[in-house]
């Protein structure tokens, strides 16, 4: 494993730890999109079905199990423990995820390495991950103001995607490894994040600094 891949995985891990830590400290899930978190549960479960079919490494297995369990746990926290049901803000999370699911399914039926259930679900998980953050971004755009939690969380997720790009370059030249589906969907995802950071920077950071005397 190269340094970019490790840094990418660590950023991903960090983003989830930040989310869990903040929820449990504040005893609140305000500002977190339930829809995005449910999409991540679907992403991890459909992608890591290979836990049952092949063993890659202890690291790989542990990370996969962590991602599945933590994503389910976060949904549980939002839905039951620190429920947002009574909050008005919940209807800010009104992104039509049906389109994301349908689009990802369609894309996975067209683009896959083999027309088998496992391969289609794996491709589906890549497409879905590339757009899963959209409900969260929409929610943030609607409220206009992002708190530190969501900003830090999304920043770490963006960092994770950014590190995967030099990782692919490295692997292509060093190992001749090139996974065109992962690279293509990964690039879409990184573009979404960079677009978000650009808008966020323009609207929030610049607006905030211009307000200062």
């Amino acid at each position: 494993m190269n340094i970019f891949r490790i840094l990418g995985d660590l950023s991903h891990l960090t983003s989830i730890i930040i989310l869990l830590h903040t929820i449990n400290t504040n005893k609140s899930t305000t500002g977190i999109s339930l829809k995005t978190q449910i999409l991540y549960v679907i992403v991890f479960i459909t992608r890591y079905l290979d836990l049952f079919t092949k063993f890659i490494s202890v690291y790989n297995t542990l990370m996969k199990i962590f991602f599945i369990i933590s994503s389910v746990y976060i949904v549980y926290l939002i839905q039951y423990k620190y429920s947002q049901k009574h909050m008005v803000k919940q209807d800010l999370d009104n992104f039509k995820v049906e389109y994301l699911l349908a689009g990802s399914l369609l894309a996975s039926l067209i683009f896959n390495y083999k027309f088998t259930p496992l391969e289609i679900l794996w491709s589906f998980s890549l497409w879905l991950e590339s757009v899963a953050i959209l409900p969260q971004l929409m929610m943030l755009t609607r409220t206009g103001e992002a708190d530190m939690l969501t900003t830090n969380y999304i920043f770490c997720l963006g960092l994770y995607r950014a590190f995967y790009i030099p990782n692919w370059f490295y692997r292509y030249f060093a190992e001749g490894h090139f996974d065109k589906l992962a690279v293509f969907t990964g690039l879409i995802q990184t573009l979404l994040y960079s677009d978000f950071f650009y808008i966020y920077y323009k609207n929030v950071i610049q607006a905030r600094s211009s307000k200062l005397p």
Partner: peptide, 10 residues
């Protein structure tokens, strides 16, 4: 025999 892509990334 087709070349399988090694899926060792997360």
């Amino acid at each position: 025999k087709e070349e399988r892509v090694k899926k060792d990334e997360l």
